[in-house]
Amino acid sequence: MPGRLALDQARALIDIALVKADAVGVPINVAVADDGGHLLAFARQDGAILASVDIAIRKARTAVLLRMTTDELGKAAAVGGPLYGIEGTNGGLVVFGGGIPLFTPDGDLLGAIGVSGGTVEQDITIAQASADRLSADHPGTAATSPQRARA
């Protein structure tokens, strides 16, 4: 099923993120978007910050639209960067970590995961753990940029 993130994979991403969030000790919101940036699955843990519902969804959508992590985007969108001001486009993009795109080894975009509720570092850790586990469980996926996926 190249180019498509299946619902069972999206649910697995969510479940793994929730377990990791419990281990980290922070309640989160987690969203999985398909390859078009549309919400495929979502969960909000008890006590998660309500504002982070929208942020998690936008992190996943941003990672799909730009085919890069929101952490990478944040660096490019910093003052003086080549993408400075991009967060105001496309209905609002997120330019801080916690959104990770998912690719096939050939570089085809599958979708993305977005995590919000902790610090940026916690969000990245949780999202990355989930994406890495999906890659291990479903060998046709990679949580990286298409350039690195081909290497």
Results as ranks from 00 to 15, higher is better:
residue 53 V to E: 00
residue 61 R to P: 07
residue 74 G to Y: 00
residue 82 P to T: 14
residue 110 L to E: 03
residue 11 R to E: 15
residue 64 V to Q: 02
residue 125 T to W: 01
residue 30 V to Q: 07
residue 81 G to I: 08
residue 1 M to K: 10
residue 29 N to G: 14
residue 98 G to E: 12
residue 118 G to K: 08
residue 61 R to W: 13
residue 114 G to A: 12
residue 11 R to P: 00
residue 67 R to F: 03
residue 35 D to F: 02
residue 85 G to D: 06
residue 109 L to V: 14
residue 151 A to E: 10
residue 11 R to T: 10
residue 15 D to R: 15
residue 109 L to M: 13
residue 97 G to L: 10
residue 151 A to M: 04
residue 88 G to D: 05
residue 29 N to L: 04
residue 21 A to C: 05
residue 1 M to R: 10
residue 38 H to P: 01
residue 27 P to Q: 05
residue 119 T to V: 07
residue 71 D to S: 05
residue 100 I to Y: 05
residue 87 E to G: 04
residue 4 R to I: 14
residue 4 R to A: 13
residue 88 G to S: 12
residue 125 T to I: 12
residue 119 T to L: 06
residue 25 G to F: 06
residue 53 V to Q: 07
residue 134 L to F: 01
residue 138 H to E: 10
residue 149 A to N: 10
residue 34 D to G: 02
residue 32 V to C: 01
residue 87 E to Q: 14
residue 48 A to E: 06
residue 30 V to S: 04
residue 113 I to M: 05
residue 105 P to A: 14
residue 123 D to V: 12
residue 47 G to D: 13
residue 27 P to S: 05
residue 85 G to K: 11
residue 26 V to E: 02
residue 64 V to Y: 07
residue 122 Q to K: 04
residue 24 V to C: 02
residue 43 A to D: 12
residue 149 A to R: 08
residue 90 N to I: 01
residue 139 P to G: 11
residue 79 V to G: 01
residue 78 A to G: 01
residue 47 G to A: 09
residue 59 K to Y: 09
residue 25 G to H: 01
residue 111 G to W: 08
residue 10 A to E: 07
residue 61 R to E: 13
residue 98 G to I: 14
residue 119 T to C: 03
residue 25 G to C: 03
residue 31 A to P: 03
residue 91 G to D: 11
residue 106 D to Q: 15
residue 45 Q to V: 04
residue 85 G to H: 05
residue 83 L to M: 15
residue 137 D to L: 03
residue 20 K to C: 13
residue 77 A to R: 02
residue 80 G to F: 00
residue 150 R to W: 00
residue 5 L to S: 07
residue 39 L to H: 09
residue 101 P to M: 14
residue 103 F to R: 12
residue 147 Q to W: 01
residue 141 T to A: 15
residue 37 G to H: 09
residue 94 V to Y: 11
residue 18 L to Y: 04
residue 112 A to R: 09
residue 111 G to E: 04
residue 15 D to P: 04
residue 53 V to S: 00
residue 119 T to S: 15
residue 10 A to K: 10
residue 7 L to F: 14
